[in-house]
Design a protein around this nucleic acid. Structure first.
Length: 260
DNA sequence: ATGTCGTAACGTTTACGA
């Protein structure tokens, strides 16, 4: 089963780029971030025509996540537990039935956190603490699951072309990296790094300052696999070429293949 | 040269978030 994550930066602006990529990459499941629309504004037909079930968790103008799946989606849960006051749409979960086993898929858009320090950075760290709590609950089930999306965390210096430029940024501050490490250390496998080593692998290039032309990127979109999911990992890659196409998102898709 | 995009709104331009 091929599962992909793609921060599309606006479904209305990205519909053609997204459907073109789906037609080529043919993921069984895709988690999307920054749909930037309310649920009613998300177009279902282009995806249903292609055999995808669609579940969204949107809000007006910003944020918003979705899951597309060629298999039925069960037990859909919207929103990250742990704060009833939180109205930002950044988390969606659903269970997908594979041939061998079911897989719980969590799609996430972790807060950016800039400027740091400040309330936005506090929100980011609090959100990561809530994610850890939810991860602990899911780990206790001992069922295969994964958490995929835009983590807005550059795990290590080798994950940026110019690490010095991100030194004071919320995406790379020591506290952000520590929180990400602690999450992984609960028992997850960071899929890409389990199979690909070394610098030069990025998932985001800013629209500004010719970042793409300079390959001035960062790796911030990640798949964390539970132990039972990690046992089934057979492949992973970043669809880098998508960034060079017409009207691209500033992120590119990343995917894993699991034997489920 | 602080460089681009996407979205929303009392909109033909500004503000915000990234």
């Amino acid at each position: 089963m091929k599962i992909a994550s793609f921060n599309i930066n606006g479904i209305k602006a990205r519909l053609e780029a997204l459907t073109n990529w789906l037609d080529e990459a043919q993921p069984d499941v895709a988690v999307l971030q920054e749909i930037k629309t309310v649920d009613e504004g998300f177009p279902h037909a282009p995806f249903e025509e292609r055999g995808y079930n669609v579940e969204t968790h949107g809000q007006k103008g910003f944020n918003g996540v979705a899951i597309l799946s060629k298999h039925p989606l069960e037990d859909v849960q919207r929103g990250l537990p742990g704060d009833d006051e939180d109205e930002q749409a950044r988390w969606i979960e659903a269970t997908v039935m594979g041939e061998a086993t079911s897989l719980r898929v969590c799609g996430l858009y972790l807060p950016n956190g800039n400027p740091a320090p400040g309330p936005k950075y506090d929100y980011k760290l609090a959100w990561m603490a809530r994610q850890k709590a939810r991860a602990a609950e899911l780990l206790a089930t001992e069922e295969p699951f994964l958490m995929a999306g835009d983590y807005n965390v550059i795990p290590q210096d080798e994950d940026a072309k110019r690490p010095e430029a991100w030194r004071e940024d919320a995406l790379a501050l020591p506290q952000s990296r520590a929180a990400f490490r602690e999450l992984v250390a609960m028992g997850f496998t960071e899929a890409f790094r389990a199979r690909v080593q070394g610098p030069g692998h990025y998932t985001f290039w800013d629209y500004q300052a010719g970042a793409w032309n300079r390959d001035d990127g960062i790796r911030i979109d990640h798949f964390l696999l539970s132990p039972q999911a990690a046992d089934r990992l057979t492949d992973t890659a970043i669809d880098k070429d998508i960034r060079g196409r017409e009207k691209p998102s500033d992120h590119v898709p990343i995917w894993v293949e699991l034997d489920v």
